[in-house]
Amino acid sequence: MRLNDQTTSALLLVTPALLGLLLFILLPFATALVLAFTDLRLGSPLAVNFVGTDQFLSLFNDPDFIRALLNNLLFAAVVVPLQTILALALALLLNRGLPGTVAFRTLFFMPVVFPMSLVAVIWSLIYAPGENGMMNAFLQWASFGLWEAKDFLRDPLLAMPAIMLLSIWQGVGFQMVILLAGLQGIPQTLYEAAALDGAGRWRQLLHITLPQLRNPLIFVMLVTTILAFRLFDQVQIMTRGGPENATTTVVYETVQAAFARQQVALASAMTVVFFLLVLSITWLQRRFTHHEREVA
């Protein structure tokens, strides 16, 4: 029987992958769901108890965690639109195939291959306090000397915007590439027809380009929103959540709880909240994406 033949070899082929997914994704995730309702601490000799929703209640009474949630929301609310608009502008500028566009595309994409830890270190130098710091010097020059040198990463008002800027610098090339691919998929005939009807540049952008880019745009916004909620590396390296919790994030608080304070149960509860956030963002994206072809 050919069918049986294939079942045997199929099982051989999928077993390593399924075993990995089961052991290292499904099992840990299920563990987090269970641990979130206990009072487990790493290395504690006390018996573990089920405490119901106590961990979640204490989370939402914890000003640090609330601040972390708000910071993630703020980060998403600022970075997602800014980065998407910048990526769209770059893609539109590069889409015409002017001489030299390949070099520009290479340059804009280059930060994407940089590890975030390195980006954080480089930008710490850019944000150096005092007039020697590159960002301070630039702002002083741009404001005709009005800008007073600031210590960006230790200023509660400036630390978050500083982290936002370097995140955009690192991530925008990724979105640009996806939008460029989307732009290249728009049939040229649509523009020709619109031009015949006398539609100008802006009307073509509004009525052809943007609607045709709908799915790629929603996709890049989804990815950036999820990245905004995964924010960690920059914060850990540059500010450690400070000053005054100005840059703390959900993942940063989770790692602090699990790693520094050994509160595995509390960290698991944070993980569950994080997962629910990601789930709802993805659900929103699915709702807004036009499905022309279904997967599988």
Binding site: F29, A267, F275
Partner: peptide
Amino acid sequence: VLALMILPFEAIAVPLFY
């Protein structure tokens, strides 16, 4: 398997660390 794609690493880091 497709459904697992939604889980970012951060959603399993804590139990994996444990």
